[in-house]
Simulated scan of single mutants.
Amino acid sequence: MNWKTLAQEVIEGKEISNEEALSILNTSDDDVLALLDGAYDIRRHYFGKKVKLNMIMNAKSGFCPEDCGYCSQSSKSTAPIEKYPFISKEEILEGAKRAFDNNIGTYCIVASGRGPTRKDVRVVSEAVEEIKEKYGLTVCACLGILKEEQAEQLKTAGVDRYNHNLNTSERHHDFITTSHTYKDRVDTVEIAKKYGISPCSGAIIGMKETKEDVVDITRALRRLNADSIPVNFLHAIDGTKLEGTNELNPRYCLKVLALFRYMNPSKEIRISGGREVNLRSLQPMGMYAANSIFVGDYLTTDGQERNSDFHMLEDLGFEIELTEKQALAAHL
Score class of each variant (00 low, 15 high):
Val231Ile: 15
Leu242Pro: 08
Ile237Ala: 08
Asp216Pro: 04
Tyr262His: 01
Ile229Val: 12
Pro250Gln: 06
Pro265Glu: 09
Leu224Phe: 06
Ala258Gly: 11
Pro199Arg: 05
Val214Thr: 10
Arg219Thr: 14
Pro199Asp: 03
Gly206Leu: 11
Arg261Gly: 01
Val256Met: 13
Glu247Ser: 11
Val256Gln: 13
Leu224Asn: 10
Gly196Ala: 12
Met263Trp: 00
Leu259Gly: 09
Val231Met: 09
Pro265Thr: 03
Asn264Val: 05
Glu247Asp: 14
Gly244Asp: 00
Pro250Leu: 04
Gly206Arg: 13
Arg219Gln: 15
Lys241Glu: 14
Met207Asp: 03
Pro199Ser: 09
Glu247Lys: 04
Arg261Lys: 04
Phe233Arg: 06
Asp238Lys: 13
Pro265Ile: 04
Asp238Asn: 10
Asn264Gly: 09
Lys208Cys: 09
Ser201Asp: 11
Ala258Lys: 09
Arg222Thr: 00
Tyr195Asp: 04
Arg223Tyr: 15
His235Cys: 05
Arg222Ala: 10
Thr245Gln: 09
Leu248Ser: 09
Asn225Val: 01
Gly244Lys: 00
Asn232Leu: 07
Leu242Asn: 10
Ile229His: 11
Pro199Ile: 01
Ser228Ile: 05
Phe233His: 06
Tyr252Arg: 02
Ala220Pro: 09
Val214Glu: 03
Leu259Cys: 08
Val231Asp: 11
Leu254Trp: 13
Asn232Cys: 06
Asp238Thr: 07
Gly206Pro: 10
Asp216Cys: 06
Arg222Ser: 09
Gly196Gln: 14
Leu254Gly: 13
Asp213Val: 01
Arg223Val: 09
Gly196Ile: 05
Arg219Asp: 15
Gly206Glu: 12
Arg251Lys: 11
Arg223Gly: 05
Ala258Asp: 10
Pro199His: 03
Leu248Cys: 05
Arg222Cys: 01
Gly244Ser: 00
Ile205Gln: 08
Glu247Leu: 14
Ile237Pro: 01
Arg223Phe: 15
Lys255Met: 11
Lys211Phe: 12
Ile204Val: 14
Ser228Asn: 14
Ile237Tyr: 00
Glu247Trp: 03
Glu212Leu: 07
Arg261Asp: 03
Ile237Asp: 01
Val231Arg: 07
Ser228Asp: 11
Ile217Phe: 02
Lys255Asn: 13
Leu257Phe: 06
